[in-house]
């Protein structure tokens, strides 16, 4: 177990979570991207000790676990798709409203007011 890698994962998650809690859509997307990096690294860490690249060439040296790598590879690509889609949303939102803020949900606000009004 390599402690610095665990710390790096923790740092990525912390920064990602902090950005995810913001109101600016761009920062939320940045947060998701950071969380994605953290998750990929975490997957790789779960594979155990590092080793030779998992390529079959007849040598007996220990190879690193290929399974988390395959999972992480899929995750990288999916994170990319998600980020691109969210960016397109941000662009669209900017075109329509010239605003990058995530507003409070108006409908939810109204429900909350109704609840307070009745009691």
């Amino acid at each position: 177990m390599i402690v610095v890698l665990a710390l790096a994962v923790g740092g990525l998650y912390a920064a990602g979570a902090f950005l995810l809690l913001q109101r600016s859509l761009t920062r939320i997307i940045l947060g998701i991207a950071l969380l994605g990096h953290g998750a990929n690294l975490l997957l790789l860490l779960a594979g155990g000790a590092s080793g030779r690249a998992p390529i079959v060439d007849g040598s007996d040296q220990a190879v690193s676990d290929p399974l988390p790598q395959a999972l992480a590879l899929t995750a990288i690509v999916i994170t990319f798709g998600l980020t691109a889609f969210l960016l397109a949303l941000a662009y669209r939102s900017w075109l329509l409203r010239h605003d990058d803020e995530v507003e409070d949900d108006v409908e939810d606000r109204r429900i909350a007011r109704l609840g307070r009004g009745k009691s």
């Binding site: 909350a112 609840g115 307070r116």
Partner: peptide
């Protein structure tokens, strides 16, 4: 239900 909805579902994403 109204009260708890108001508290739980207050509309703020963060």
């Amino acid at each position: 239900a109204d009260r708890s909805t108001g508290v739980m579902q207050n509309g703020s994403l963060p």
